[in-house]
Design a protein around this nucleic acid. Structure first.
Lengths: 249, 249
DNA sequence: CGTATCATTGAGCTTAGTCAAAAAGTGTGG
DNA sequence: CCACACTTTTTGACTAAGCTCAATGATACG
């Protein structure tokens, strides 16, 4: 769904939430490879690598956000990784990429490392070797998290845990607020549900008082417990028509 | 679902389909580390590593099959990787495993490599370093495949592509037959659907003539095209009551 | 100040989950 | 070799969650 007829939901991502989150960790990867990095500033929607092309580079997000995705036979898009500052990508066991990667926001910057040379360096420098290994393990961990989210039963749970994950990954320590860099379409394709369902779920979570929205892309967590529980989210007052005026958006 | 009340669906997996699939590639990993491998034969259901414990070992499946999984708060089990001969696991960016791994069949053999020592060896031997990197990239690739399967829309598509994946991974080249080493419960927890749905989907695929079952765990692919298409699988003759006596089970 | 995209909401319908129970295998011990 | 106990697998009936189609608000950008 989602990206069925409308091939690219790009153009206008709008919102105040896009000044990347380049924190300390953004520079924490491939330190010992940085001297051969190519810095690439990307605009929204710009393709960074494309499926089927020779996998000649590894990358690391410096700021902004990127989506790694696959287009299915039926035209649907499945996002298989959301890449935030500090996240590395481009790893594949084969000669070619079996995915594509695009910048999600303007102001996205990635560092590119020629794979061949990086591998040769890894051969001679254990620190490089360990950095790459660590980056791959982190990618593995992200994918597992995503699988656990996508594998949830109800859309409410998926959206709820997605927000929690984004909070953890985008906000420092105890923050309860996240500025999502991506559109509802991206969220939908990440969670493998329809855009409408994402929207409805957010509305529902808002009505239940678990989150608040400031603008469309800034989410504040009001009840973390309930969000990660899932028990609370299943078959409960689906539309409790309590005449509550939810403060703002 | 699935593993909700009934914690473990083990005991009797029976069936003729369990003589592991140790082919050449089973030994193709960590060649240069083999001298420090511990060979562990495992019985069905035996735990190989457990969530939350220090990640002190890396592993490689030599024969049989294993499932990597996570138990959710609500008690459901999500399988996040099916490990077949040649597949490596145990990789984590943190100090502890954030998953558990169990043998799926009797006759499962895994090789264990002490992480510390393996890392030190990788530091000094580029071949080791590359082997580990390659294994991690393959794990990444498996996870991406699973995500693409779980992210499909209908259960019919999920089960269909699952069978295709298993055929590719378990059978040599052009074979159209797979002996699934795992139960319907495992399949359900891998696909994040209910057991009943898995069973119904298989029945449906059988009725449509896309597969045939010999016994309950041996699947023969009759129409690969249709299976990977998905288009064919959506809203079509859901129960064509043609009085056909499907040859055998 | 239009225009395009993003976001939300509604109505109808299909799919899959749940609960319940039967059928088919498998293994064991008498 | 058979009967029993236990799993695994399948099927049915019912319910509810989410997809689709369609339309209406919002918002940003030129």
């Amino acid at each position: 769904m989602t990206t069925k007829e409308s091939p690219v939901h790009e153009a206008n991502a709008g919102g105040p939430a896009h000044q990347a989150h380049a924190r300390g960790r953004a520079l924490g990867k491939f330190k010992n490879l940085d001297f051969l990095a190519t810095i690439m500033p990307c605009h929204r929607g710009q393709e960074i690598c494309s499926q089927g092309r020779p996998a000649e580079m590894w990358y690391c997000v410096r700021s902004g956000a990127a989506r790694r995705y696959v287009i299915r036979l039926d035209g649907r898009r499945q996002i298989v990784d959301l890449l935030l500052p500090g996240d590395c990508f481009g790893f594949t066991p084969d000669a070619d990429y079996d995915f594509a990667v695009e910048a999600v926001t303007d102001q996205t910057v990635v560092a590119g490392y020629p794979r061949r040379r990086a591998e040769m360096l890894a051969d001679s420098d254990p620190r490089v070797s360990r950095e790459i290994r660590q980056a791959a393990f982190e990618a593995l961990s992200r994918l597992q998290s995503q699988l656990l989210i996508v594998g949830r039963i109800t859309a409410l749970e998926k959206v709820g845990s997605f927000i929690l994950e984004m909070t953890v990954r985008l906000s420092r320590a105890g923050s309860t607020q996240v500025a999502l860099p991506m559109s509802r379409y991206d969220i939908a394709d990440y969670l493998a549900v329809s855009v409408e369902t994402v929207s409805r779920s957010l509305t529902d979570l808002k009505r239940r008082g678990l989150i608040r929205l400031s603008g469309t892309r800034t989410v504040e967590i009001m009840d973390r417990e309930a969000l990660e529980d899932g028990e609370t989210l299943t078959h409960l007052p689906p539309a409790c028509n309590m005449a509550r005026h939810h403060g703002t958006a």
